[in-house]
């Protein structure tokens, strides 16, 4: 059974068809990349999967259960973590607090926990959550920054912090929206290794990225989206030579 399955998913905004009848599966344990020109509907796909948008037609299922139509927070709690293309950190809060918020679904004490904050059982959970959060920060090499304000981190580290925050959810599937954007080649190389390690811990990775070198070096499979339509899917070496893909990127005539 596939981990994530998009079945004939379409979304229209007014007259615009942003995603058009897309069928796609993400298999457990793989790294799948979604590529395509600007405005192809890649981020919209992520927003569909995480329930920010609801598909006009078609269904999305995760672990065999339909999730399309569910609220964003229940989809997250079901085990899908994500990052955002335009970084959405809790800027004025500490790095650690950002990750602790990511670990929200790992905790149980709510309002009653606030009333009994000093009780040993509440403090025990807080301690466990904090340790888990630090562990997630270590995975992206940011543990030493735990007590700084998120907004004060350099851009590349902010992107990594978003990944740590998504990992704190203990997701089965993590969606990375342009994780390497704005990074220099060295940072990209470091990130590439990090993502591989994350996959090695059993997390399935689905990412959107523009940097071809990064995508080719990382992905098990690649899917290509153009004007909301999936035009190709396959192994990196097949995608590289696929004439339809080259045409989508370079325009008609480039293949001839």
């Amino acid at each position: 059974m596939s981990l994530l399955k998009l079945d004939n998913v379409t979304i229209r905004f007014g007259g615009l068809v942003a995603v058009d009848s897309v069928n796609l599966t993400v298999e457990k344990g793989e790294i799948l990349s979604l590529i395509g020109p600007n405005g192809a509907g890649k981020s919209t796909m992520f927003n569909l999967i995480t329930g920010i948008y609801t598909p006009t037609e078609g269904t999305i299922s995760f672990n065999g259960k339909q999730i399309s139509g569910n609220k964003t927070h229940t989809i997250a709690a079901a085990g899908i973590g994500r990052t955002f293309q335009n970084i959405r950190l809790f800027a004025e809060q500490s790095v650690l607090d950002n990750v602790l918020i990511g670990a929200h679904t790992r905790g149980t004490w709510d309002l009653t926990g606030s009333l009994m904050k000093l009780a040993p059982w509440v403090r025990k959970e807080e301690g466990e959550l904090t340790e888990w959060a630090i562990e997630c920060l270590k995975q992206v090499d940011l543990a030493h920054r735990a007590y700084e304000m998120a907004v004060n981190l350099p851009y590349g580290e902010q992107r990594r912090l978003e990944i740590a925050r998504a990992l704190a959810l203990k997701p089965d599937l993590i969606l990375l929206d342009e994780p390497a954007a704005g990074m220099n080649p060295q940072e990209k190389q470091v990130l590439l290794e990090m993502v591989k390690k994350i996959r090695a811990t059993g997390v399935t990775v689905f990412l959107v990225e523009h940097d071809m070198k990064f995508v080719m070096g990382l992905s098990d499979r690649i899917a290509v989206l153009d004007y909301g339509v999936k035009i190709a899917e396959g192994k990196p070496e097949d995608i590289r030579t696929n004439p339809q893909v080259i045409e989508a990127y370079l325009g008609k005539g480039a293949v001839h």
């Binding site: 920010i52 927070h73 918020i101 929200h104 959810l169």
Partner: peptide, 8 residues
């Protein structure tokens, strides 16, 4: 939006 994506 980010809060919701964290399962809140």
């Amino acid at each position: 939006i980010a809060a919701e994506a964290m399962g809140i």
